[in-house]
C-alpha cells in the first residue's frame, strides 16, 4: 500500500521554510537553493508527515496507479 505512493514536490510553491526537512523522521529531505529536495527516495517511508506540516502545499504523496 505504501509502495504505490510517490513523493511529489511543487517547486514553485516551496518557500524553503525547512519545516519538512526538520521533521522528516528519516532525514531524507534537504534544502538546495531555497527549495526542498528529496535526497534518498528509497529511504523515504512515505509517512506523509512532510505533507501534513508543509504550510504551502508544496510537498505531498501521490497515489500511483
Amino acid at each position: 500500500m505504501v509502495k504505490n505512493k510517490e513523493l511529489v514536490i511543487i517547486e514553485e510553491w516551496c518557500k524553503g521554510c525547512s519545516i519538512c526537512v526538520e521533521f522528516c523522521p528519516v532525514k531524507v529531505l534537504e534544502l538546495k537553493n531555497g527549495k526542498v529536495r528529496l535526497i534518498d527516495a528509497d529511504k523515504c517511508t512515505k509517512c506523509g508527515l512532510c505533507e501534513l506540516r508543509c504550510p504551502d502545499f508544496a510537498i505531498y504523496l501521490e497515489v500511483k496507479e
Partner: peptide, 28 residues
Amino acid sequence: MASELVERYFRKETLPNIWCPGCSNGIV
C-alpha cells in the same frame, strides 16, 4: 497538479499563498 486535497478544495489560481515562509497559517 497538486495533492488531491488541494486540487479539490483550494482555488489553485490563488496559490502560492501570500504567507511568509514557515508561517503556520497554511498548516492550520
